[in-house]
């Protein structure tokens, strides 16, 4: 069916309200912030510019300075925190995807009560606000928390994970698990029984079936799960703020500290842009995966 021209414009008009909203309140502010990070302190940036300290500025609209970027990148604290943020993101994403796959395969290949409990458990964190989750996780792994208490009862000195990067990874895995599990379970469930049966009848072992039949077909949902986890983790604030150490910190916390406690909003904005660029990298994988799936099923 070839849509008429009016039909197509009507579609665009219907789709426009959220697009306009996002353009005005996300796209535009990001551009303004970008200008601020490049030294523009006039116009919309004038309020923030008069309060802030230690800014790199330019005196004409057509000039730019990378002073703020140089300052931020020269700061060993930022270098350290950027590395930690990326490492935490990778660790969290890998753990979440592995866990989600474990649960998904269990649910796919069995429908025992174990499978039902597993899939229900994995979704629980979705029901709990992040603030509470972070705090609960901190107390659970703290010096006087459950893990250490139970270990003390059997005579072991368990490690203290409260206020460490380990706690941050635990918290981020906890909060990201439901979405990833839902995505991967949905993908794995979609693999037709006939295909699995055929492979099994041809003598393929279960691991072999998983690797060559199920995994390729659930690739796109896995990539989506991974991307969302990675992007959410990169800019995470609440979990690392509550459970993490004073140093090293994740950039989401740095961002808030620089803006709120150190009165260095320009550095804060530079960090936001750096996170955005890294997140865009992950986002690119997501778009590619979707495009590939759309292309192979002839929808492009």
């Amino acid at each position: 069916m070839k849509p008429s021209r009016r039909h197509r414009l009507g579609g665009l008009a219907l789709a426009s309200p959220p697009l306009i909203l996002v353009a005005v309140f996300v796209g535009f502010p990001i551009l303004v912030a970008l200008a601020y990070s490049l030294g523009q302190v006039g116009g919309l940036n004038s309020t923030i510019g008069t309060i802030a300290t230690e800014q790199s500025t330019v005196d004409a609209w057509y000039k730019v300075t990378f002073g703020a970027y140089r300052t931020v990148f020269a700061d060993p604290r930022f270098q350290r925190d950027l590395v930690v943020t990326v490492l935490v993101t990778l660790a969290t994403t890998v753990i979440v995807v592995v866990l989600a796959w474990g649960i998904a395969l269990y649910v796919r290949l069995s429908d025992s009560w174990v499978a039902k409990i597993l899939s229900a458990l994995a979704v629980v964190p979705m029901f709990i606000p992040v603030v509470i989750a972070s705090w609960a996780i901190l107390t659970f792994y703290a010096a006087d928390g459950f893990l250490r208490s139970i270990a003390a009862h059997v005579g072991i000195e368990a490690p203290i994970w409260g206020y460490t990067i380990t706690a941050v990874v635990i918290g981020l895995v906890w909060t990201n698990l439901p979405f990833a599990t839902l995505m991967v379970v949905s993908g794995v469930q979609g693999v037709p029984d006939a295909l699995i049966e055929a492979a099994r009848d041809a003598g393929a072992s279960i691991p072999r079936t998983v690797v060559s039949i199920i995994a390729p077909m659930a690739l796109v949902p896995t990539v989506i799960a991974g991307t969302f986890t990675a992007i959410g983790t990169l800019g995470a604030f609440t979990v690392p703020y509550f459970t993490g150490p004073n140093a090293p910190k994740m950039l989401g916390v740095d961002l808030a500290d620089y803006f709120q406690s150190f009165n260095l909003p320009q550095s804060s904005v530079v960090m936001a842009i750096v996170i955005f660029i890294v997140a865009s990298g992950f986002g690119g994988v997501y778009v590619w995966a979707n495009y590939r799936s759309a292309a192979s099923s002839g929808r492009v």
Binding site: T53, D75, R77, R80, P245, N246, A247, P248, D257, Y258, S261, F262, N263, L264
Partner: peptide
């Protein structure tokens, strides 16, 4: 107060994790 803000920042930079 401006020095106090700097103390916040410099402490964060110079003390934890060093």
């Amino acid at each position: 107060s401006d020095h106090a803000t700097d103390i916040n920042n410099l402490w964060d930079q110079n003390v934890p994790g060093k």
